[in-house]
Nucleic acid binder design. Structure first.
Length: 688
DNA sequence: ACGGCTGATACT
DNA sequence: TAGTATCAG
């Protein structure tokens, strides 16, 4: 799982910056009277005082630890102030901490490539800045060294006779004459400044490790906490690593580390040195083997990614013990809450960062009562992500259903009412991934036009059609179609479904090969109708199935069947004749009018497997972190301020959609990737 | 199955 | 690819 990569240069300057008990600091800033007091942040106060997720340093002195219960902490430290994590929609809501993390990143991203490693950790590549500093001060950096920098810890520095400060000062000035260490010294000065700046602007303290690679920086950022920094000179690496317990190494805290201990008798990093690269590869695979061999020697070529924003968003909750969810309505209720939070975060990512997520994934954990096979895991399911809280809710519930059906298995009995609770859900989470920036800048716009002119391929056309279908069918979001409100734990047996599927609505077995694709895009060759119908039928089937097998059905919305008016709406949007299922309109490049923004994305992002995508991503990478962030921050949702240059160059329909996209949560991009819609879970299986 | 919630990454 | 597993804090 770790990937070996050689060092690109042995003289990089990498810093790892780690906020000190971050959540606690956030709470203490909010409530200054907590400063200086033993404090911990706790979630779900109800049960045994809640679980601690962050502990301040004053409280640590009492032996209070993370993952303790609030009650335990109180025993050890009666004075402790427990602050609850904010709760929204019945679950812990970490947004205040995420936002505080962003504050920090925006400051840290100023001086070099910056990677958001987690909500409270950042890597910086300060190589260039350090080199610059060095060349600008050929006669030494004496005048740049301040009191704070002198407080740095330098690994391996002999603190023999005089006091530590003097030694450190000396080190800063001499560095044994080693160029690499001179660079580190400059890096350390920069980090000092950054940390002071963070403190000034946010009131948060942080600690840091400064070294030649990420591994060493990370390893040392926590050595002297809080509010201190540690430098790893090249010459001290070996002695530093040798006695280090193997499990302290990042990635070795789990099974792999255990395996090293028990199978190879490796307890310290030094113990690893005696194994040849080949022997490690033999046991752990090529990549991991080399990686292990390298890290034992302090070699880690991993680059600092220039990324200030998370790659995914998720919202989840566990339902331990008695709280396990045993009915579909309760699952749906909680899914709705989770989806609402997710949607909100997606929305603000869109507004603040102009990014769009493409994939929605549902994870659940469950157990079966009654069943031998209770070890089986609940499968994760994903589909194209459609924006809008309601849509995300609908889709995740469908995904859940798809997962549940699989989880329960074919043999399941359909005895209604009898085996009421066959399953129980102990955890639910929804997440959004594959997040891309909305293409902007003339380069990609130009490419869009370029693309549009040249590529009227059949494949693309079908993409468009599918897009229409998918978008409209579930345009129920506008209140038009349906939302399932279900009850009762039973799911009809798969056997049953398989039969009904042969009853005409679905392609027969020998046709299924075609059908999968046809569902996702009208087959142009023979102008075969379908997709929308199929999808609709499928959903109705699903609904009926569940309602009929459930103990109670709930309908809290208006109309479970399509009404006349939303039928028309769908027709209009989809270009399909609902009665015949046939295509009403031709989707040539002149006439298609619907999800233009989707085509835009497709042609600019997905369609181009090589050049276009690369071009746009590289564009972003070229920006310094600072630029990226500043740009994000300056985006302020008034549509007419949206990079007018860019917007005005877009085709009118796209302009309109982008504006709508950015302005109205309700009316958002209908982007569905071919073949990735939730519908495919409900299609007849290929071979049986 | 009370170590919750969130995120990244690599393998298949 | 979608889905799984591992790791981290």
């Amino acid at each position: 799982m770790p990937v070996a990569k050689p060092e690109s240069s042995d003289a990089r300057v990498i810093a790892h910056i780690d906020m000190d008990c971050f959540y606690v600091q956030v709470e203490q800033r909010k409530q200054p009277n907590l400063r200086g007091q033993p404090t911990a942040v706790v979630q779900y106060n109800s049960w045994k005082g809640g679980g601690l997720i962050a502990v301040g340093y004053e409280a640590r002195k009492f032996g209070v630890k993370r993952s303790m219960r609030g009650d335990e902490a109180k025993k050890i430290c009666p004075e402790i102030r427990l602050v609850q994590v904010p709760v929204a929609r019945g679950k812990a809501d970490l947004s205040v901490y995420r936002n505080a993390g962003s504050e920090v990143i925006s400051i840290l991203s100023g001086k070099g490539r910056c990677e958001r490693a987690s909500i409270d950790e950042v890597y910086l590549d300060l190589t260039e800045a350090a080199e610059t500093m060095l060349t600008e001060h050929p006669n030494g950096i004496l005048d740049l060294i301040n009191e704070e920098a002198i407080k740095s810890h330098v690994l391996g520095l002999h603190l023999d006779d005089h006091n530590a400060r003097d030694c450190v000062r000396e080190w800063f000035l001499m560095n044994n004459g080693d160029h690499r260490d001179k660079l580190l010294a400059c890096g350390a000065l920069i980090v000092t400044e950054l940390r002071l700046e963070v403190l000034k602007q946010t009131e948060f303290t942080c600690s840091a490790g400064i070294a030649h690679n990420k591994m060493l920086a990370k390893l040392t950022s926590g050595m002297h906490k809080p509010a201190q920094q540690t430098i790893v000179p090249f010459s001290s690496v070996k002695k530093f690593l040798e006695p280090l317990p193997i499990k302290k190494m990042k990635q070795l805290g789990g099974k792999l580390g255990t395996s090293l201990e028990t199978e190879l008798g490796v307890n310290t990093v030094g113990d690893l040195l005696q194994f040849s690269e080949e022997s490690l590869q033999e046991r752990y695979g090529r990549n991991t083997g080399t990686w292990l061999w390298n890290i034992a020697r302090g070699i880690c070529g991993e680059e600092v990614e220039g990324r200030l924003l998370p790659k995914s968003h998720g919202s989840g909750k566990t339902f331990p013990g008695r709280q396990a969810l045993k009915t579909l309505p309760s699952v749906q209720k909680w899914l709705n809450e989770l989806c609402e939070e997710l949607s909100e975060r997606l929305q603000s990512d869109l507004e603040q960062n102009k990014r769009i997520a493409h994939t929605l994934t549902l994870h659940a954990s469950a157990y079966k009562l009654n069943d031998s096979e209770s070890l089986k895991k609940f499968p994760s399911k994903s589909c194209a992500l459609r924006y809008g809280s309601t849509k995300i809710q609908e889709d995740s519930f469908s995904l859940f259903h798809a997962g549940l059906r699989e989880y329960i298995g074919v043999y399941n009995v359909k005895t209604k009412g009898s085996n009421q609770h066959e399953w129980a859900i102990t955890g639910l989470s929804v997440s959004a991934s594959k997040i891309v920036e909305i293409p902007s800048g003339t380069n990609s716009i130009t490419k869009y036009f370029h693309n549009k002119d040249q590529s009227g391929t059949a494949r693309k056309e079908s993409d468009y059609v599918f897009t229409n279908d998918a978008a409209s069918s579930s345009s129920s979001g506008h209140g038009s179609f349906k939302q399932l409100h279900l009850a009762g734990p039973e799911i009809a047996p798969c056997e049953d479904e398989a039969k009904t599927q042969q009853d005409g609505l679905y392609p027969r077995e020998n046709e299924t090969e075609v059908s999968k694709d046809s569902v996702f895009g009208t087959n142009f060759a023979d102008n075969q109708p379908l997709s929308f119908f199929q999808m609709k039928e499928q959903k109705e089937r699903l609904e009926e199935e569940i309602l009929s097998s459930s103990s109670l059905g709930v309908q809290s919305w208006v109309g479970s069947k399509p009404t006349q008016s939303n039928m028309e709406f769908v027709e209009e949007v989809s270009g399909l004749d609902m009665k015949s299922g046939k295509q009403k309109r031709k989707f040539d490049s002149e006439k298609r009018t619907t999800p233009s923004i989707l085509r835009f994305f497709h042609s600019n992002v997905e369609a181009s497997s090589s050049s276009d995508v690369q071009a746009t991503t590289d564009e972003c990478k070229c920006d310094s972190g600072e630029d990226v962030l500043r740009r994000s921050n300056s985006w302020n949702y008034k549509s007419d301020e949206i990079d007018p240059v860019v917007l005005n160059e877009l085709p009118p329909e796209i302009q309109a959609e982008v504006r709508a996209l950015l302005l109205q949560p309700q009316n958002q991009a209908k982007t569905v990737k071919r073949g990735s819609s939730i519908v495919h879970y409900f299609l007849p299986k290929k071979n049986s």
